[in-house]
Amino acid sequence: MIHFYYSYQPVIDFFLLSLGFAYSQQIALRAGVFSIGTAGFAALGGYLVAILATRTEVPMWVIIPAGAAIGALGGYVLSIPLARLRGAFVAIATLAFVKVIIALALYFEDLTGGAIGVTNIPRIMDTWSLALMALLVIYVNWSIGRTTLGRIFAALAQDESVAASLGVSIRRYHMIGFMVSGAIGGLFGGLQSLYVYNIEPNAFGFAFVVTILTVVVLGGRTTLLGPIMGAGIMAILPEVARPLADNRTMVNGIIMILVITFLPRGVGDTIVDAVRHRWRQRRGASRPQKQEVADAVASD
């Protein structure tokens, strides 16, 4: 077991980091927002944490939440103009947002180190602390599923105008979706900085965007299991077949097309759907007891 851990530690760490980013990506989609802005939030959190950790004496228990906070702020600010945009256009607009963040990181050299980025960041994250943070994010997502917020997000994702006809403010809840996505993205951007020693602008570019999107499409866009499956498969894949690692871009592309065409809900969501379907058949017409309620929502 110990041996297994040491030989696969980098894979596990990579899995945990992409898991966090995947939840940031997923929560936006769950709320019906086609944002692919996670890379931008990660860059905001990543840079803030890297700069604070290398240039100031601010304690870590302040720095790490600050990464999440700036991500949430970014999500809030972004949500205001984007409230005017519909559906798919949000995707490109958030891509433009990522571009803006990267351009700013390149421009303000004094602060960000320009193209070289921030170097010599103290490495304080290890597998266990990353796992703890991933659990925290899973808890938040699980909580959304156990409350009416989860139903509202599901309603927005399925039919915005029906949700509005029931009194749901599209703007307010899309803003919440953006902010949660931003907070998680900023948090994990910061954690990544405290793990990889140095960060540079291009690490948050197009490749980041599509990698995270692939994870969520492959895993699933609505369930807790989705990102776990997606990040897991994407972490193992290059280990299993080395040639795939050289053409990662194409592999991502092929996975996206195949999954969205033939298994549109993704691996994780499809499994959860099947399990849930069996539960419901067994339950029949009994009033939902408290325990059952907890079960039923556990993975929504």
Binding site: S143, T147, L149
Partner: peptide, 13 residues
């Protein structure tokens, strides 16, 4: 809801 506080989970029930 995000923090999973009892007030929010109770409301759904």
């Amino acid at each position: 809801a995000l923090l999973g506080l009892p007030s929010a989970t109770r409301e759904l029930r």
